[in-house]
């Protein structure tokens, strides 16, 4: 079992809100992803038992949505927006800076499993570009100084 008792209870709670159990697939995946940092076949099976929807139906949904990583990532997933508003304010240069600073390429994880760096489409934070999201949190109006500070804070917190 990967899902904790707390996660199972959260999924059960969600399930009760919907007229049909299939609607609980995305909320269940969200709970699982937030706990484990990824979702996979094993997790689909566990969810299947809780919400009584077939594993294949859960896999069908999970594989459509980009938010649910299918394999473990670093402790902190850095998602940098590279869509138009951010790109106009230097998203490419921000991505380059992060790659250099973390010594990894896009899609890679640092050796200490602390950071994974990915690029994402518009995060809906265009008037405060450039922006990145680390796990659930947004970091907006980024500057080199701010990025340095954020990474340092996360490292010292870990």
């Amino acid at each position: 079992m990967i899902l904790t008792k707390e996660s199972v209870n959260k999924i059960r709670e969600k399930l009760q809100q919907y007229p049909k159990p299939k609607s609980a697939i995305l909320p269940a995946l969200t709970v699982a992803y937030r706990q484990a940092g990824y979702v996979d076949e094993g997790i689909y099976k566990e969810i299947s038992k809780i919400i009584n929807v077939t594993t294949v139906e859960i896999a069908e949904a999970a594989t459509f949505y980009t938010l649910f990583a299918k394999e473990p990532r670093g402790k902190y997933l850095i998602q940098v927006c590279h869509n138009i508003s951010c790109a106009l304010l230097g998203a490419d240069s921000l991505i380059g800076y992060l790659q250099e600073k973390l010594n990894i390429k896009i899609g890679e994880t640092t050796e200490d499993k602390m950071f994974t760096l990915v690029t994402v489409e518009c995060l809906g934070s265009c008037s405060t570009a450039p922006v990145m999201q680390i796990n659930q949190d947004y970091y907006e109006r980024l500057t080199k100084e701010k990025v340095d500070q954020v990474l340092e804070d996360l490292r010292s917190k870990a």
Binding site: Q17, Y18, S23, P27, F64, Y65, T66, L67, F68, E121
Partner: peptide, 12 residues
């Protein structure tokens, strides 16, 4: 009247 808050999975 009941309200449900539902979150998506990252798809435009």
């Amino acid at each position: 009247l009941d309200m449900v808050i539902h979150t998506g999975g990252g798809a435009y």
